[in-house]
Design a protein around this nucleic acid. Structure first.
Lengths: 144, 144
DNA sequence: AGTCTTATTGCAAACGATTTGCAATTGCAT
DNA sequence: ATGCAATTGCAAATCGTTTGCAATAAGACT
């Protein structure tokens, strides 16, 4: 359902061009995000960053996430209950299926659903700026 | 897109049956929710309740919302940014279009989208417990 | 490399939304 | 009426996140 090469855009270049300084904390966080298969929250990113550089603070993680979000480098997801979780914005757009038992996040995409969303919004006189589609479910138990 | 008689189920009866006490604060909050066209947050409910009974506390509003949510009497929505907003669970299921400029919430429903969701989950080996579909948009400016 | 300017940092304190401990109150079965 | 557990209000605690501020460090310019 979801595929796509996990492109690795050069955010350092982009930041430099925008006059944003490349600091050690930012480099570390950027690296963590780039090599991320999952959807970590701020605390998890903070811990992974701490493992690399003890001095990085949680505030800086939050500030950096906000910065990157503003740049469009990452997406912020507010799944039910928990803290915000982040993912690199490189791949194509997708929605999420959250495993209620494990917290795992599975990505999927349906062009058809998006078309229907647009259609609905249009009929209501709206233009969609963005949307959020999250499925919360449990793994189907397979016989055996 | 959305219609349907706003049924007014007798939650007092249901609560009594479940051994849950009908207290004054609960009755007030229940009434507020029943006569609600919008999607108020806890503070708004608290204020409307205070107007009827000064002594009702915000904690009780929160506790009652949790109770009612557990009973399935209301739905809790965590739209972007703001606090949780609530609505009576009486009507049929629907999703939400949030007006980014006004915060207004428009309800809609698409059977087709739900079917597609089920299909996607099934293909991924999951059973959907519930889902969240929110469209964030702006009113289309009409020529004129 | 040395110096300057200013963005960025870490820390601790503030924040908003929500939850909780506890003693006082109240619903409701008796 | 009586009694006891459920519920309340209050204040304090909690969680995730943001912010003020003085110290630090990035990058531009010698």
């Amino acid at each position: 359902m979801n595929q796509g090469t996990p492109k690795k855009p050069d955010y350092e270049r982009e930041m430099r061009r925008a006059g944003i300084r490349i600091t050690r904390p930012r480099r570390v966080i950027l690296d963590i995000l780039a090599g991320c298969e999952d959807h970590p929250d701020a605390m998890e990113i903070f811990q992974r960053a701490s493992a690399i550089d003890k001095s990085i603070s949680l505030s800086t993680v939050y500030r950096t996430m906000k910065l990157l979000e503003g740049m469009g480098a990452i997406h912020r997801h507010a799944f039910e209950g928990g803290p915000a979780r982040f993912e690199q914005a490189s791949g194509e757009h997708h929605d999420h299926l959250i495993d209620l038992d494990t917290g795992d996040v599975i990505e999927f995409h349906s062009r058809r659903i998006e078309e229907l969303q647009d259609e609905i919004a249009r009929e209501l006189g709206y233009e969609i700026v963005h949307h959020r589609l999250e499925l919360y479910g449990r793994r189907k138990k397979r016989r055996g």
